[in-house]
Write a protein that binds this DNA or RNA. Structure first.
Lengths: 229, 229
DNA sequence: ATGGTTTTCAAGTCCAGACAAAAAGGCAGG
DNA sequence: CCTGCCTTTTTGTCTGGACTTGAAAACCAT
């Protein structure tokens, strides 16, 4: 019958959304709240900590907790494993390897991955399809200095993403989203008009301060990433 | 000198990224870990809980915790308050109201906001500029049935986003990102070529199952949303 | 075998108390 | 007035103990 940290959390959130505690105002201290809710301070602490993580309130030692003036909105998108994303829609997933080569890293990639001049990379272009229609275009570069196994790996049957997940642990990732226009090759692969606006996700994966792989994922025309909270 | 939950967390993460504990494998139980680290179970619990939140491991009662086979990657983007985003770059923020009208909600908006036929909405088009160059185009619709104050509010000096934050508490938000092409009007406002691919963020804000506002934010050409982890 | 019931185990939560660490505010000396 | 030190307040974390809950597994009767 006693208050759970969830109860406390939603009660506080209620007070904020109902306007009882206005943005910028100071929230009672943990000790006081623990008393009013009849719980331990640790329980109040957890409730408040989670609210802070969610960007609702701001906490500082000595000064106390206050309602954020600008509720820091953050969107969390799941980066799905593409095979699963498609199969969960009840559609048939198909993978196709468009191109595979081992080359010296071009200038722009060297800059991005901080590679030595002359470094070898494996470059792959793949297509992911749902019920036969193109879903995503994958342009993948793998650092062979760090992942020599990638030289012999066979990507004709399944994509490099799944292979990579079994090969490397990761330590840091940078994701970036932007819009780009379809060039001739993209248009052909994604079955759309040249110049069509497309959503692009770029991802660099790092391990111990070394870049392992860089991928440019171009989504099918009209694709949208959605999240709710 | 004793292990903190952070120590434990990073040690476990290390074991996973180094491959000592492989994807799918079972992690020792909290009690056992507490013993090996010489800490209380609650401390181990916090470490493990956070790892689970971050999608590194998967926990189930009775079965125990195991390393996720597909490390659920999720990207978290901060949705900045635009004024601040620009000012933090040391650039001058400027706001301009392009258009303001009160109209009957068009069909597509009614469908999206679940409005009654004939419902009145306030429609605003604004521009946010950094050092005089266009940064973001805001196309905002406000439900007047829910927010009648919006009828009289003056948006000529500052944007509706900041006004709204002071007016409504929020309860649920849906954010969606996609790519779109610049039409003639967008091209003129954002100072780019028609047809140029642009990143678009759409946001619907709800309060108590009623749609309060819908906004379509079009970012300047070349804009990218980035996150790291 | 089959389906329902009980056991058992691991995670989930809570508590009361303790100490640590950050930071604001006050105080003293220059 | 400024500077550095000390005190106090508040959050941050840890402990060792307890009870709760969900789900797998074992048991039992059909």
């Amino acid at each position: 019958m006693t208050a759970t940290y969830r109860d406390i959390k939603s009660d506080i959130l209620g007070k904020i959304t109902r306007g009882e505690w206005t943005p910028g105002s100071l929230i009672p201290g943990e000790l006081e709240l623990a008393e009013t809710y009849g719980s331990a301070r640790a329980t109040v602490n957890r409730a408040m900590r989670e609210l802070a993580e969610e960007g609702i309130i701001e906490r500082k030692r000595k000064s106390g907790s206050r309602v954020r003036l600008t509720p820091l909105r953050q969107a969390r998108f799941d980066i799905p494993v593409i095979r699963r994303e498609i199969e969960e829609q009840g559609r048939a997933y198909r993978y196709a390897l468009v191109r595979s080569e081992v080359v010296e890293a071009p200038e722009w990639l060297r800059a991005r991955l901080a590679l030595q001049p002359g470094a070898q990379v494996r470059h792959l272009i793949c297509l992911h399809l749902a019920d036969g229609t193109p879903w995503q275009h994958e342009d993948r570069w793998i650092n062979l200095a760090l992942l020599p196994q990638a030289l012999d790996a066979d990507f004709s049957a399944s994509g490099p993403t799944e292979w990579l997940m079994s090969q490397i642990p990761f330590s840091a990732v940078e994701i970036s989203i932007s819009a780009t226009a379809a060039d001739a090759s993209l248009a052909a692969h994604l079955d759309c008009a040249p110049g069509e606006p497309l959503l692009m996700t770029e991802r660099s994966t790092r391990w111990n301060d070394q870049m392992v792989t860089y991928v440019r994922l171009i989504h099918r025309p009209g694709h949208r990433m959605t999240t709710r909270y």
